[in-house]
């Protein structure tokens, strides 16, 4: 795989998102909003004296695990279908890029933005929660082992699963709106359903880790299925029909 082509593809996609003010500022707003909501909801629990209650705090940070998948539903679901609708796909497919390099470029752009934004959100949440609770508790509440697993393992893996699933599903869609709708109404709820048992389990570290491994395996399976489905001929002739 020629990574310089993949990197250039990602860079171009980033720049297109950056130039699209509506999408770009929505993306910036996403971690801020999620952190604000999580802080408001979890502050009372954090300040309570019960250690058991504080164990529930990790469920609030769980929402940030979904940021990469949400970002994918915003920008990843449309990236290929948009190229086709804008007629830029044909000249792109005429370059020496291979099908798997194109898939990797298209998948990695939204995935890396999503992971970056989730880390920004986790960091903001940790800093704000510690700043607000340190005076009362006398110790730093975050980061916990669980937060770190969520931040550096579960969020990227959930993002991968969401991205590959979204690209696979969007390949069957007729237009940009359909791709986004399916991504938001099918892929995200599916991920949420997969995640609910983990949250319900009381946010146990081991369960989170095992779930992460399960998601990783699922993501890899979907990756290989997606790469097989991601053939230039199929994209050129069938996609968007």
């Amino acid at each position: 795989m020629n990574f310089s082509l993949v990197r250039e593809m990602m860079r171009k996609d980033f720049q297109e998102v950056r130039r699209n003010g509506y999408v770009f500022y929505s993306l910036l707003l996403l971690p801020i909003l999620l952190v604000a909501v999580s802080v408001i909801d979890s502050l009372a629990i954090a300040l309570s004296t019960s250690g058991q209650s504080r164990a529930l705090l990790s469920t609030f940070s769980t929402i940030m695990v979904f940021i990469p998948a949400i970002v994918t539903s915003l920008i990843g679901s449309t990236s290929v279908i948009l190229e086709k609708n804008n007629h830029s796909l044909e000249p792109l497919l005429a370059t020496p890029i291979t099908d798997s390099e194109l898939f990797a470029g298209k998948a990695l752009a939204p995935l890396s933005v999503g992971i970056l934004l989730s880390w920004v959100a986790f960091t903001l949440y940790i800093v704000v929660m510690d700043a607000l609770t340190y005076g009362h508790l006398g110790y730093l509440l975050f980061p916990t082992d669980l937060t770190l697993v969520q931040m550096f393992f579960l969020a990227p893996v959930t993002g991968m699963l969401g991205t590959f699933l979204t690209l696979l599903v969007s390949s069957k869609m007729k237009d940009v709106r359909a791709a986004q709708q399916v991504s938001a109404l099918v892929v995200l709820p599916l991920l949420l359903l997969l995640f609910l048992p983990i949250v319900a389990s009381g946010a146990d570290l081991i369960i989170n880790f095992v779930a992460g491994v399960g998601f990783l395996v699922a993501a890899l399976i979907i990756f290989f299925v997606s790469v097989k489905a991601f053939r230039r001929e199929t994209i050129l002739i069938s996609w968007g029909k």
Binding site: L5, E8, K12, E16, R19, N86, S88, E90, L92, T95
Partner: peptide, 19 residues
């Protein structure tokens, strides 16, 4: 089929790099 939000130069630069 250009990348309409990007500059003309960036469009050509992108393809140059892809080649």
């Amino acid at each position: 089929g250009h990348y309409e939000n990007l500059s003309a130069y960036r469009n050509l630069q992108f393809y140059g790099r892809m080649y």
